[in-house]
Design a protein around this nucleic acid. Structure first.
Length: 441
RNA sequence: GGCGCGUUCGUCUAGUGGUUAGGACACAGCCCUCUCAAGGCUGGUGCACGGGUUCGACUCCCGUACGCGCUGCCA
């Protein structure tokens, strides 16, 4: 038996998808998937001036990136369309007429207002519980405008009409709408209809406690796409903001979240977005990537950051990238991490230089060079054995020669396994780089 | 100002009258180790405040403070 659960995400096209909006969409989507219901996407573009193709594309792209497919809405259609409010004006006029005929509307200098019945309205919210709003005082709760003198519609009205028309069963939205809800219910009742169920989810705040706004770079989903985050990680992190599996799990498969998702487990207090935790969680997902997944994402990232891979054989690139697996949390860290594979023009880290390129280390580095030069089996195992033997010969711990060698060969004091990276680079390049380094101090 | 909501480590959270207040991120130290990660171990920091109710409150009630939201011819 098909579920009659129908939820919607109703963003306005403001030019990008807000991370809070994405979480709202996610909770709606999870609720729909959990119950086998429908997830509807509706674009609230009543403000024609702000309605652009690019703005809507940002919403579609962001949702798709997060894997939040919609069952009805733009592109996929559905029996309750159209799904852009700008194309539904006749419908709103019809409902307006109904309200006018029953005496609920009055004209205020060309604008139309809904006359409040002036009563108490109880909002029975799935997350917030029963809340009693006293709407009897017109001074504190003025009659709300539903249409401007120029004929354009106000959010409070069209939002309610569309939810009714689209047979939305549950309205899951940000808590910033909680105070508006009793007024929405007044309109619905005036229409003789039954309000949907409501679930108001807590807001997402910045570190400093302020509401996340467009000005914060991490506030848009696009930021995480660009920075090389994994959608599964961002999605997982977003789930943890305000919702909890209640059993201390952090990394949870999507299927599992769908299975256990329950609006009753949504908290009531606002949550602060923690980039560090997202970064960690992304690393958890990144470490699980297969060779080919890692390779694909890595090549894309290197390409978009201007690293030219064309002049290198694919086997070389694959081998190089393989040494980076499990080492980075987000892909935007990769170019700096593995750039030495794809250029001979190394910039030695100044701090590492003062530490490693010392008079004492110069002869040691020569020893390393000589030893590697005579190595026949130039693979990680052979290289490791060679370095260890060299260290022993010099009466040193292997770390003492590893550090200057790494700096000479990669320009940095951090990076992939030295033995493996030397193998990938190959004897010729490695010797040349050590020679070059030796000439600098 | 009015109305509404909220307040457990720095952050995300578990917790529903009796717990050594648990986990995770971050942080610090140690171990492992060719660096960095990863992994393992250890550590510190928390129930906003004041009244009740109760044999007993983080848990229930009332205030206060603080934060957030709404109060638009924005959504």
């Amino acid at each position: 038996m098909p579920s009659d659960i129908r939820v919607r995400f109703a963003p306005s096209p403001t030019g990008y998808l807000h991370i809070g909006g994405a979480r709202t969409a996610l909770f709606n989507w999870l609720f729909a998937r959990h119950h086998g219901g429908k997830f509807v996407l509706r674009i609230e573009d009543t403000d024609i001036k702000r309605n652009t193709e690019e703005a809507m594309a940002a919403i579609y792209d962001g949702l798709q990136w997060l894997g939040l497919n919609w069952d009805e809405g733009p592109h996929v259609r559905g029996e309750f369309g159209p799904y852009l409010q700008s194309e539904r004006t006749e419908l709103y006029a019809k409902y307006l007429k109904k309200l006018q005929d029953t005496g609920h509307i009055f004209d205020d200098q060309g604008a139309l207002r809904f006359r409040s019945p002036r009563e108490h309205v109880i909002v029975d919210d799935i997350v917030c519980g029963k809340i009693d709003f006293d709407l009897s005082n017109p001074a504190t709760h003025p009659d709300m405008t539903i249409r401007r003198p120029d004929g354009s519609w106000i959010f409070h009205f069209v939002n309610v009409i569309d939810d009714l028309e689209m047979k939305i069963s549950h309205v899951i939205r940000g808590e910033d709408h909680l105070s508006n809800t009793p007024k929405h219910i007044e309109i619905i009742r005036a229409l003789g209809a039954t309000p949907p169920h409501y679930a108001h989810i807590p807001l997402i705040l910045n570190r400093d406690g302020s509401k996340m706004s467009k000005r914060d770079e991490g506030a848009r989903v696009e930021y995480y796409i660009r920075r090389g985050y994994l959608p599964a990680a961002v999605r997982n992190y977003l789930c943890l903001l305000g919702w909890s599996p209640k059993d201390n799990r952090e990394k949870i498969d999507l299927d599992e979240i769908i299975r256990i998702f329950d609006l009753k487990n949504i908290g009531r207090s606002s949550a602060t977005f923690d980039p560090d935790k997202l970064h960690w969680l992304n690393g958890e997902y990144a470490r699980e990537l297969s060779d080919s997944e890692f390779y694909g994402l890595a090549v894309a990232k290197l390409g978009s950051s201007g690293v030219n891979l064309d002049k290198f054989p694919e086997t070389y690139v694959r081998a190089a990238l393989q040494t980076c697996e499990g080492k980075i949390n987000t892909f935007d860290e990769l170019p700096a991490y593995c750039g030495f594979y794809f250029t001979d023009d190394l910039n030695y880290d100044p701090e590492a230089v003062t530490k490693q390129f010392t008079p004492e280390n110069k002869p040691r580095l020569r020893e390393v060079s000589d030893a590697l030069r005579t190595l026949e089996q130039f693979d990680a195992a052979g290289i490791e054995a060679t370095l260890k033997a060299t260290a022993k010969k010099l009466g040193l711990k292997v770390g003492a020669i590893v550090h200057p060698t790494r700096l000479a060969v990669t320009g940095s004091n951090v990076g992939p396994s030295l033995y493996h990276l030397i193998e990938v680079l190959g004897k010729e390049k490695v010797l040349a780089r050590i020679d070059h380094a030796l000439a600098t101090f």
